[in-house]
């Protein structure tokens, strides 16, 4: 599962980033009225390469169980924090899964966690956005680890911090596109980011706190599991 050539991953990453960029450009420059359908199509297209890759792989029972279990864990991670409404460990679990099991697993865990929690809570037009955002969070974490950019804990914390905001901004973009306001300008995007600043900062700090306190514990748990599942061979 660790395999997968880096250039392939790069292409996929570029594809997704490009599609997001295209959506952004559309929204800012073209006063086109069909941002929403176009953005949807692009989003869904961006997930397809990952799925195709997964379909082609021959995964054994242990690997399937592992990915499904991690996804479910990320999806229910909020339950123990019911008394702390602003805290959610989903992003942290997604990033940690990617760090331990690679970028493909990272993408799938983030993606599936978003999908299944939407299936349980009711799907909506936001579903593909969450799927892509969490998927990309996992994928980039695994990818940066592959290119040795996640060596220190500081970088990991920084990564979690940045993604806290990125995730919020992706969701802002969704809201703006969905509301189809007649003038989507940089100013509007900026003001939406300011409006959501508190939540995004909260998400970002949450990731950092979890990374600082629990990174090692998680890695230990996962390395034990790797051995148990025979994934080290």
């Amino acid at each position: 599962m660790q395999g997968g050539k880096i250039h392939k991953g790069k292409i996929r990453l570029m594809l997704t980033i490009t599609s997001i960029a295209v959506i952004l450009m559309f929204s800012v420059y073209a006063a086109d009225k069909f941002l929403m359908p176009v953005s949807f199509v692009l989003l869904i297209l961006s997930m397809i390469p990952f799925y195709l890759e997964f379909e082609k792989k021959e995964l054994n029972a242990e690997e399937m169980v592992l990915i499904a279990m991690l996804s479910a864990l990320a999806a229910v991670g909020r339950v123990p924090f019911a008394a702390l409404p602003s805290i959610q460990p989903t992003s942290f679990i997604v990033i940690m899964s990617a760090m331990a099991f690679g970028k493909e697993v990272g993408f799938l865990v983030g993606n599936t966690a978003a999908l299944i929690s939407n299936i349980f809570l009711g799907q909506g037009p936001w579903t593909p956005w969450q799927m892509v955002s969490w998927g990309m969070m996992g994928f980039t974490a695994g990818w940066l680890k592959d290119v040795n950019l996640m060596e220190s804990k500081h970088r990991l914390c920084f990564f979690g911090f940045v993604w806290g905001f990125l995730f919020g901004w992706m969701m802002n973009l969704w809201v703006l596109l969905f509301f189809q306001l007649s003038d989507i300008s940089w100013k509007l995007i900026l003001s939406s980011c300011i409006a959501s600043f508190k939540f995004d900062l909260n998400h970002a700090l949450c990731n950092v706190v979890f990374m600082l306190l629990f990174h090692e514990r998680f890695m230990k748990v996962f390395s034990r599991i790797k051995e148990k599942y025979g994934l080290l061979k």
Partner: peptide, 16 residues
């Protein structure tokens, strides 16, 4: 369209 991915999702839904 994606049988294996869907199967994995169904397993995850079982675990939730």
């Amino acid at each position: 369209i994606f049988p294996k991915t869907a199967f994995m999702c169904m397993m995850a839904m079982r675990f939730v």
